[in-house]
Design a protein around this nucleic acid. Structure first.
Ligand SMILES: [Mn+2]
Ligand SMILES: [Mn+2]
Ligand SMILES: [Zn+2]
Ligand SMILES: [Zn+2]
Lengths: 147, 147
DNA sequence: ACAACCAATGAAAACGATTTTCACTTTCAA
DNA sequence: TTGAAAGTGAAAATCGTTTTCATTGGTTGT
């Protein structure tokens, strides 16, 4: 880990080590607040900005990526061997992952058809998980209107 | 328009009419600031909050939806007859749309396999458009490392 | 071991888009 | 016409994110 960072041009510090370990110890889709809370369990002196900066660093060195679900909070997701999409529950905010390996070639084709150089693909399904469906009132499907 | 809103339980006002007209007059992917600026061209007295609230209303009645690309600004996109995805240029922030009709059945299947009730699908490709590719320095592809 | 350089840290402040508050006005159904 | 409810505008509040700045400490070369 120290070696890896060195090759990328970054230093190792005690705080950084704690933060990295805690990040990979937590599951997927970690928020700054969650990681900050976790790290503080073992070291009360680590600052929020340091956690934030190291989360950014983890992304910069290619070990994670930001996930934005539109709920105003950025999550940090470990990069997985296979690309995946997310089912995002609007009720409880739970995230379920699903494989998207077979969709990528199609998307790559779309991109190249536009001379677009893709850096990342995002496939998300928002809705309600099984648990939250009962509590969710059905909004009537609106028809497209024009005036 | 007035009738449509009435059936939804909302009132019509001069400001609302201007805002709705301006929204549908602008293209796709409108930001609050853009719409605010547009509306102010014809009426300097309309407030920012009113524009914002009406954009939310347009979504609530099912005529548009929020689009979050992770650049910190919410865009409002008219709902189209066919579902579509976005190519989002990280350089110039340009958005290119593409048809996703044929991907939806697959995603629906994924959702139902998880007993998940889908409300919306989001398919995005981030990267660099043709114009921005030259200016963009290539970041070396990082290999997944574990420690 | 020491020095020097510069990245990293922590607290606090700044930022900026979004959302709410509040006093006042307007719409619309009865 | 009139009252209740919804809508408006300015301003302030929110809140996650990002930056600033003084200080600490890791790394490298001597
Ligand atoms: Mn994930
Ligand atoms: Mn669109
Ligand atoms: Zn749920
Ligand atoms: Zn571009």
């Amino acid at each position: 880990m120290r070696e890896f960072l060195k090759t990328k041009g970054f230093k190792m510090t005690p705080q950084r080590e704690r933060i990295f370990k805690a990040f990979f110890g937590l599951g997927q889709h970690v928020t700054v607040d969650e990681l900050y809370a976790k790290v503080r369990e073992s070291d009360r002196s680590i600052g929020y900005a340091t956690v934030w900066r190291n989360l950014k660093l983890i992304c910069k060195v290619g070990l994670a990526e930001e996930v934005n679900l539109g709920d105003g909070v950025t999550r940090y997701d470990r990069i997985t061997r296979e690309p995946h999409g997310h089912l995002f529950c609007l009720g409880c905010k739970k995230l379920i992952e699903f494989e998207t390996t077979e969709m990528v070639p199609g998307l790559t084709a779309v991109a190249s058809a536009q001379r677009f150089k893709p850096e990342g693909f995002k496939i998300e399904i928002t809705g309600y998980c099984e648990k939250c469906q009962s509590e969710h009132k059905e909004a009537e499907t609106p028809q497209a209107v024009r005036w």
